[in-house]
Design a protein around this nucleic acid. Structure first.
Ligand SMILES: [Zn+2]
Ligand SMILES: [Zn+2]
Ligand SMILES: [Zn+2]
Ligand SMILES: [Zn+2]
Lengths: 146, 146
DNA sequence: CCTCTGTCTAGACTGAGTCGCAATAATTAT
DNA sequence: ATAATTATTGCGACTCAGTCTAGACAGAGG
C-alpha cells in the first residue's frame, strides 16, 4: 500500500516506467511469503481481473530477475519458482511442504567453493546453492501427524 | 563395445530389461564427455537412424535419473542438461564455455549446510549445488585470446 | 496538452515434455 | 523350443510454458 514497495523502488531507480501492470505485479509478489510460480501469478492476476497478458507477466519477471529483486529457483521436481529477495549474493532454503523460504548468506560456502576451485582447477565464477527441507512450522505439524 | 558400460550394468542390476533402445541411449550418453541435453540426444539418435521415439528417450532419462547414473543440471540460462555420474551424493562444476564437467564431493559443503540448518531452524534434507566457471583448458584459450 | 518512445494486449506460435493405448519383444515358465 | 507374461516401445495427439509480432496505449518530460 505504501510507497515503500522495494520492487517499485528499484524499478523507479533503474529508470523504468512505473506502469499499472508493473505495480500490479509488484503488489501480487509482495503478497507471497515464500516462492511463487509464473502460473500462480497468472492465475492470481486473472482472478483479480487485472487483465495482464502473459507476455507482460513474463517480461516483468525477466526484468525483475535482471534487477535482482527476485530470483529464480529450480525446484527438485524440475518446476521453476521465484522468490522475492535482496540483491546481494545469497541462497535460499525452501520448505518442501509449505513453500516458505529463508535467505542465507554464503557463510562457510565460500570456503568450500575456494577449495573446490583448488581441487578441480576450474576458475569458478558463479554458483547456485539451493536447500530443501522442513521449516520449523512444518516440522511441528509433521511431528503431530505421527 | 565391451560389456562394461556402467549404465547397462546398473539397468541390469536393477532388474530392468536390456532393450535395444536403452542400449542405444546408453551408448550415446557414453559418447559425451560433459553434459548433454535431451534435444542433443534426440538429434543424435535421429542422425544415426536409431528410430527411437521422443517418449522412449524421456522415459529412459527419467529412469536413469532415478537410478542415479545421470543427474539433471539446471543451467543458469534455464536450460536443462544431464551429466553421467556416480551415484553417491556429489556436485558438478560446469565449464560455461565448453561444457566439460567435473564431479566434486561435499568437502566443506556439509559443514556449511549444518551451519545453515542451525541458523534458519530448517531441517534440511536435500541440497543442490551447481558451480560454473572455466575449466583449465578454456582458461588457457581465453588468456591467448587477449 | 503534445510528443516520443517504452510498454502493453491479444493471440498466434514454438518446442519441450507427457499420455494413452495398441504393438512389440525381453523374460520366464512349460 | 514354444508359448505365456508383462515390461517396454512407438505413435500421435495433447498440454503447457514461454516467446514473438504488430498495432494500440500510456508514462514522462517538455
Ligand atoms: Zn514449511
Ligand atoms: Zn553463494
Ligand atoms: Zn572448458
Ligand atoms: Zn552436497
Amino acid at each position: 500500500m505504501t510507497q515503500t514497495d522495494p520492487i517499485i523502488a528499484v524499478l523507479d531507480l533503474g529508470g523504468y516506467r512505473l506502469t499499472a501492470p508493473r505495480r500490479a505485479i509488484a503488489a501480487l509478489i509482495a503478497g507471497y511469503g515464500g516462492h511463487f510460480t509464473a502460473a500462480e501469478l497468472e492465475l492470481a492476476a486473472r482472478e483479480r481481473r487485472l487483465g495482464l497478458s502473459r507476455a507482460t507477466l513474463y517480461r516483468a519477471l525477466d526484468l525483475l530477475i535482471e534487477l535482482g529483486v527476485i530470483e529464480r529457483l529450480d525446484l527438485p521436481g524440475g518446476d521453476h519458482a521465484y522468490v522475492p529477495c535482496a540483491r546481494a549474493h545469497h541462497h535460499h532454503v525452501v520448505c518442501s511442504r509449505c513453500g516458505r523460504t529463508a535467505e542465507v548468506t554464503d557463510s562457510g560456502v565460500a570456503e568450500a567453493v575456494a577449495e573446490i576451485a583448488h581441487q578441480t582447477g576450474y576458475e569458478i565464477s558463479t554458483h547456485r546453492l539451493e536447500l530443501f527441507g522442513l521449516c520449523r512450522h512444518c516440522q511441528v505439524k509433521t511431528a503431530l501427524d505421527a
